[in-house]
Design a protein around this nucleic acid. Structure first.
Lengths: 305, 305
DNA sequence: GATGCGAATTGTCCAGGACAAATACGATGA
DNA sequence: TCATCGTATTTGTCCTGGACAATTCGCATC
């Protein structure tokens, strides 16, 4: 009672959903509307997707994440798709030259985890935790994400990077001793946001400043955030949003959260999805960069001296 | 174009799939056949599941994972279900009476993060990393999961627990110095498996033994696992499965992975979803407990001496 | 440039039927 | 009593084709 892989070269619809992240319903409706994908059928009329079509679906998925529209890309040829992906590369690579990434990307491609760790560790020691996070990790995240997008590193390479950064930051934060004071800051993300690296980076920026950060991890329901913030006598609730998070939903949820929380608790929001949303969030402190977290902390302390 | 949560008390079918792990098709066919769940409808005829029915579905999911048959449990009352679950629980709770959990659960209810951390840290120091993971963290995971299921702790409480364990284990693993030798072990999970705690626990068991663990984090596609394992000259690929992971899918994917990898690379699989799957996995080393990871490592070394 | 509004696009849901894999059950033989 | 085998039931997943609301586009207006 279980389909998934049928032959080596053909996958069932469930397997394709798993591999590409495109829901079954979407795969069927694309076939109906655009004529692609066009899977063959087994003896019972069930769809069997050839590997090449699955590969193309993965390309489409990448472009979709970049904001392209399905009608423009689903019907395009594989060549056109790879060309489009190539164009994206230029825009971004120019924008973020970066220094460490040139050393790191080849290591990630080779899955050389000890070296990756060593290189990062060395930079961390030289720069100190806060500069490391703001000046190295933040641009590296962009560079690694881009490299993945244009296929220069694979999923394991990206995982390896994330994993090592996690390790490093957690150890560094954990190594800090001394009393934790004020303000008390609650860190988390909304449901549907799975990226925890942003939270960790904020924690790494604020803990050395003597703030008392408590991270709830990712995906905390709105109502639970409110209860915890109130019950734990927190001063600030800080939310993190990756680029993948729909901005509209973020704005709505943030305003709702602001409405539910007592006014004495501040709401901070940061991350890629927050770009240009300041106007729509009158009572939320939008943090455009990691350095602004430190600024915001200083402001809060001045206001509550 | 995004449904999920509609009101606080009612969830759309996609949200229920996400929360319970039961596919949309299954939810609909149960409704047709057994009359449960019986969601209300919104203005457009779309299903809206009340929270209590979702809770009951979670209970059902648990019992299903234990091998109960749907026809016996889908129509049963919530009371009967909790009773059934209670019977099962006795087996487990008796086996691991647990000392820490009585101290910890109230702290989690109160979101008292400094105390949670302090208590765990103390136990870790007393027991050492490996005993801590096997004897304390493992039963605690079950206890916390159950407490959440029964509504005794809330989402932030659970997050807080996970977060603190993560911090502790990462620091402890990171603190280890000395050369890392053989075997080289690749740790990860399949797509759809988001729980990273299991990976970290395995890493904590094996690193003190001198094994060279590399974790790719969660959700690595099958093909990528194969490539990395081969390219990085790994000796063992270890996969972790939480109770929420569908056992059938796990078995299929594992056998597929086993087929794709060269025979010299061993495949290990552990976690709650692996209970009783040994027969179906002839060429995979199924780890029923954390202590078995150490045993398996010793075996591997004997065989490759 | 920013804002507003109709039109096109697009993802997700629905119903109800079908079927094969998994499992239970009963009969048979050691 | 226990193992094996064939049949009946259970159960998850897939199918078609229709529908519709949320999002985005294109264009006109302020």
């Amino acid at each position: 009672m279980n389909k998934t892989e049928t032959l080596d070269t053909h996958l069932g619809i469930a397997a394709v959903e798993r591999d590409t992240g495109l829901p079954k319903d979407t795969l069927r409706v694309w076939e109906r509307r655009y004529g692609f994908p066009q899977p063959s059928r087994d003896a019972h009329g069930e769809r069997l997707y050839p590997r090449e079509q699955v590969d193309k679906l993965r390309l489409i998925r990448r472009l979709l994440d970049q904001g392209k529209r399905p009608s423009k890309i689903v019907t395009a040829s594989t060549d056109e798709l790879t060309r489009m992906l190539g164009e994206e590369r230029n825009d971004i690579t120019n924008a973020a030259p970066g220094a460490a990434q040139e050393a790191l990307l080849p290591l990630l491609r080779g899955h050389n985890s000890p070296e990756v760790r060593a290189v990062l560790q060395q930079i961390l020691l030289k720069q100190g935790l806060q500069r490391f996070v703001a000046d190295t990790v933040a641009p590296l995240n962009v560079a690694v994400g881009d490299a993945w997008l244009r296929g220069e590193i694979d999923v394991p390479g990206e995982h390896l990077y994330t994993e090592q950064i996690h390790n490093l930051l957690r150890s560094a934060i954990g190594a800090r001793t001394g009393p934790l004071g004020h303000p008390r800051i609650l860190l988390t993300t909304f449901p549907n946001e799975q990226h925890s690296l942003g939270l960790l980076m904020v924690e790494a920026m604020l803990t050395p400043e003597g703030a008392h950060c408590v991270s709830l991890g990712t995906q905390t329901p709105l109502a639970d955030i409110c209860n915890t913030a109130a019950a734990g006598s927190f001063d600030i609730v800080a939310l993190s949003f990756s680029a993948a998070f729909p901005a509209r939903q973020a704005v709505d949820s943030l305003n709702e959260l602001r409405r539910l929380l007592p006014p004495r608790i501040a709401v901070w929001a940061g991350g890629a999805a927050m770009r240009g949303q300041e106007r729509k969030l009158p009572d939320v402190r939008v943090l455009a960069s990691l350095d602004q977290t430190v600024e915001a902390l200083a402001e809060w302390r001045r206001a509550h001296a």
